[in-house]
């Protein structure tokens, strides 16, 4: 498509589909939160999902690593379909990393231990190897000097970068971001976004729920707008921002860009 317009040529999108959502429905009790979601994500694609709160965007990406269960339709991640089968769920979670709004670092473990926990217990890595890998990723997010500290001693921005490093330690093929900057003070948002942009440049498949439209413009090759539990509009960023097709997208953009 037109990704040469919005980022460097490094960002290649291949043709093979890595995440496939087909006719996905989800209910919370009587409440219909996801309505007939259809979405194909290609390897190396960077998708930004936006929409008003309660529109189901977080729920949708949380279905992709089965933190939420869907009740109808199919979700296939890297060729594995998400069902009740525990093996499938394990398989998918190993390949999909996730970063949360509230970081969710383990407060009783040091930064390094946070990063090593999953490699050691899930990937069965020797500790020394896991620590070496963790240090590599901590350097990547530019906080290797904090490795021995506890999460409580770090700033919000630093904590979120640790959370990103922690996910990367599992060598995921896909990264999900659930409003990664919403809980941060303004001066810390940039350091996290910079880390995410770097990650995007390395070719990671990314799905980001975020309201950072600047980020969407620089790195996304597709923007998805959700409202009322369904995908209203999807387009490449330039078109999406300059020429929204639906009224609701327009209204949402005008509200969000005014600030």
């Amino acid at each position: 498509m037109s990704e040469s317009e919005n980022a460097s040529g490094k960002m290649q999108v291949s043709d093979d589909v890595t995440i496939e959502l087909r006719g996905v429905h989800k209910w919370y009790g009587q409440f219909h939160v996801l309505k007939d979601i259809n979405l194909n994500v290609h390897r190396g694609e960077r998708i930004v999902i936006c929409g008003p709160s309660g529109s189901g965007k977080s729920t949708m990406i949380r279905c992709i690593n089965r933190l939420e269960e869907h009740q109808q339709g199919r979700i296939i991640v890297d060729g594995t379909e998400l069902t009740d089968d525990v093996k499938h769920i394990d398989q998918v979670r190993r390949e999909v990393g996730m970063v949360f709004q509230h970081f969710n670092l383990f407060p009783h473990l040091t930064v390094l231990e946070n990063c090593c926990l999953a490699p050691i217990w899930v990937r069965k890595m020797p500790r020394r190897e896991a620590e070496a890998a963790a240090m590599k990723y901590l350097e990547k997010v530019k906080i290797p000097e904090q490795a021995k500290k506890y999460p409580g001693q770090l700033s919000g921005g630093q904590q979120q970068r640790v959370a990103i490093a922690r996910s990367l330690c599992m060598n995921p093929n896909i990264m999900l971001f659930d409003e990664p900057t919403s809980a941060l003070d303004p001066e810390m948002i940039k350091e996290v976004l910079d880390t995410m942009i770097e990650l995007a440049e390395s070719g990671m498949t990314m799905l980001c729920v975020t309201h950072e439209m600047g980020f969407a413009k620089t790195v996304a090759n597709r923007v998805i707008f959700m409202d009322g539990g369904e995908i209203i509009e999807e387009n490449e960023p330039n078109e999406f921002f300059n020429n929204p097709r639906s009224d609701r997208t327009k209204l949402f953009l005008s509200q969000i860009l005014q600030h």
Binding site: F100, R166, S167
Partner: peptide, 24 residues
């Protein structure tokens, strides 16, 4: 969120309980 983060990293429920929930 602690449980979710552990699950998202691929930890099984038993391991999550032992390494993340119980110590806290």
């Amino acid at each position: 969120g602690q449980t979710e983060a552990a699950y998202a990293l691929g930890l099984r429920p038993g391991t999550t309980l032992r390494l993340v929930i119980i110590p806290q």
